[in-house]
Design a binder for these strands. Structure first.
Lengths: 194, 194
DNA sequence: GGCGCACTAGACAGACCTGTCTATCCAGGG
DNA sequence: CCCTGGATAGACAGGTCTGTCTAGTGCGCC
């Protein structure tokens, strides 16, 4: 007993955790491979055997962020009863992240800000944005919107705008509060009566 | 005659034009000094004599963008009669830029995406964001909003959200149209009756 | 003519980047 | 026992980055 399968995480897991922390905090262009492997305690050859290139490591980092957000939002939405409440719920759930002092903006917006057209980050960001759009559109449809695509897109605009404001402006709670007001008024105007 | 004061632009002007083009199209981190000076046809020593560092060149580039937007918006707004129309006018005027195929997102969002805390780009972006905020807040006040600060912030969220969507999504006109709908509904809800 | 100044070309330093390669180690399974 | 496979450290190649420095050029103005 005490086989102590203390199981130090695998090299792949440590690399991803290190990449997630450093890439998010400082940026995918700013952080070099050497810092990622040094922080992970992993040899450089292991990184290239596992991921093949820095670009693919960035893709894996963004896919991990996507999966984590999906899980957090999907599970969090169970606490909300109606589709309409769930829409506001998305902003509540993500707003909790946004107000974290370590929040540095949407990782997909940041990673693609200076990406070349074919970069892995771009396709990872496309996937994420499609997921957000579908989430809002589906909830809008369930809430009985007459034009759920349009409402979904408007919600995504607010979602993006809040994320930008919370990264770049001083008072973050202010930005989140204004965004929530915007969402509630939008839902009232769109869903109550036609 | 024909003194042909063809007046080739000064080294400073050529550097700024080159930086504006390359930094905006490809990103301030991606484009190196060598490419800026080569495209400008200017010696490296001249760049460092004129601006002192790459960081200050980036600041000058962003200040130039800020001044150009200020001029374009301020002049464009003369065509709109009421404060309320002017608010929508800001989105019309900037929307024209957003739909340009060379649009690559808000230069301040992109330049600061991976900037270190003390970088020149951060303070230039702070100045720009304060200008946008004041513009919307002042117009909201003139339009008779009961809480112009709140309305101004909500408008900035929409403004930022449109810019993000137009950079990252396929169909740009769709994003702009949704944003304009959002703005009009917001104004109707906020300004008509109290 | 001659002075000063803005500019030019380009080498150079020193650091950092991604990615490859060698050589070694160690644990688990047959 | 030995073999395999994943992991290790670290040198290395070849390139790029910012910023400095030297040396020289052309032009306006006194």
């Amino acid at each position: 007993m005490a086989a102590v399968t203390n199981a130090r995480p695998s090299a792949r897991e440590r690399l991803l955790a290190s990449a997630d922390e450093l890439f998010y905090r400082e940026g995918v262009h700013v952080v070099g491979i050497d810092r990622v492997i040094e922080h992970a305690g992993v040899a450089k050859a292991t990184l290239y055997n596992t991921f093949g290139s820095k670009d693919e490591l960035i893709r894996a980092y963004l896919q991990g962020r996507h999966a984590a957000i999906d899980k957090r939002v999907t599970e969090g939405l169970n606490a909300y009863a109606t589709p309409r409440e769930k829409i506001v719920g998305v902003f509540d759930i993500q707003g909790g992240r946004f107000t974290n002092p370590e929040y540095r903006g949407c990782p997909f917006v940041s990673a693609t800000a200076e990406a070349m057209p074919g970069a892995a980050s771009v396709s990872a960001a496309d996937d994420y944005r499609a997921w957000v759009r579908d989430l809002f559109t589906d909830l809008s449809r369930q809430a009985g919107a007459t034009d759920p695509e349009s409402l979904g897109q408007q919600l995504q605009i607010i979602y993006d705008g809040i994320a930008v404001g919370m990264r770049m402006d001083r008072d973050r709670t202010e930005s989140l509060a204004a965004g929530l007001t915007l969402v509630r008024n939008l839902l009232a105007a769109t869903l109550d009566q036609g």
